[in-house]
Write a protein that binds this DNA or RNA. Structure first.
Lengths: 217, 217
DNA sequence: AGTTAACCGGACCGCACGCTCCGTTACGGT
DNA sequence: ACCGTAACGGAGCGTGCGGTCCGGTTAACT
């Protein structure tokens, strides 16, 4: 599945990837291939000519994500101040996951074990564990913190939904700050990022309620 | 769609509801009706004889949920200590959502607006706002807390996944404690509930990785 | 401009799902 | 024990999905 030689084919390939990213971000990973094709103004067959299947398409569309995550963790580990590194990693991972994270949840389990994907995952996990160990040793990260708590935070972050991508970013930022508050050992209370605005009072009566149940129950 | 008069029919109806609750809790709201029928050892038609459709079935299977949530908030509001009430409400809502919350996310948006469902939701929301106001006034809830942050926590809680329901409950409990830590204004650091165990190191090589991506990326 | 093969798009297939039809079964009152 | 009928179960329908096939189209090279 090498890159196409004709210019229109290359254009199409790029457009498919871009549209796929956007579509998944807005409609979730269950968005039909037909819909992606329609938005890219091409036929379905063209999608399948460029990518073996939906899995492969999404995998390539979001290939930057794992690399980004690994890089974030590495960067945090390189920080001389371990607690600062920990905070940075949490903030950046949450930020990265806030857009285009769902896809891989639905994707990774049925991806071929090769491609060194799993290996990278395990390596990043080990780095994270080391970072946690260091941050805990500084005494700024609470002593009863475990690596699983970080995973917990990332899992929780996935639950976040919001209307616009901007709102989602804002929610993720505030959420990260809140989690850092609870992870911190000391009594410091840091100011929080701006509160998120959610449509608690629907603009149009009943309308918002139906499309955004607010997760109350 | 009144209750059936024959004993076997009543038994079946109960079994369908029980199986549906369990199936949704383990396999998510997308579990096929056929699968529910199979696990209940009955035919598909029997399900549709008792319930008009999938939406109605799930709505009735989880009808206790909204009532429970409302009750929890009322109870919290009745607490003389507003901060304690706030904590209780958060803990209990998270606990309630930990099992059988997804269903309504996928369900509520396409439920008939009648049945006073929306009204109950709005009322509970108002009570929550009042509780937040009181808790903030005591000074134990941080001053920059807003109602949206509570919704945020509930949304985040939905992201939680775990193998067994027990693990999920444990995760929810620890998560709630963490969120309370970040919401608290004072410098107190409370001990946390037990850490959750996640399969960071898979027992069978590669096995866990495929079924539980750990949300790292 | 002409040739060619790479490329395109829409009709099409198989499958899984929600839901229904209809012949069969068995509960419950007499 | 008998019978009427509520209840049952599985075959089958329509739909929407992922993925494929084939006849028309067009970019790129001479």
């Amino acid at each position: 599945m090498g890159r196409p030689r004709r210019s229109d084919a290359r254009d199409n390939r790029e457009r498919i990837l871009a549209v796929a990213r956007l579509a998944v971000a807005t409609d979730g990973p269950d968005v039909p291939i037909r819909e992606i094709a329609r938005r890219a103004r091409i036929g379905v067959a063209t999608v399948y000519r460029h990518f073996p299947g939906k899995d492969a398409l999404l995998a390539e569309a979001f290939a930057a994500q794992p690399v980004l995550c690994s890089a974030v963790v590495e960067e945090g580990l390189a920080q001389p101040n371990a607690w600062l590194g920990f905070r940075l990693v949490l903030e950046e991972l949450v930020r990265a996951h806030a857009s285009g994270r769902d896809f891989i949840r639905a994707l990774v389990p049925r991806l071929p074990p090769e491609a060194g994907f799993a290996a990278d995952h395990a390596r990043t996990l080990r780095m994270l564990a080391e970072l946690v160990r260091r941050a805990r040793r500084t005494g700024e990260l609470r002593a009863d913190f475990v690596l699983e708590d970080l995973i917990l935070a990332l899992m929780a972050n996935r639950g976040m939904r919001a209307g616009s991508p901007d709102d989602r970013q804002a929610a993720a930022r505030r959420f990260a700050a809140l989690m850092i508050q609870s992870f911190r050992a000391g009594p410091e209370r840091a100011p929080l990022p701006p509160a998120v605005r959610l449509p608690l009072r629907p603009a149009g009566p009943e309308r918002t309620r139906r499309e955004h149940p607010l997760d109350l129950f």
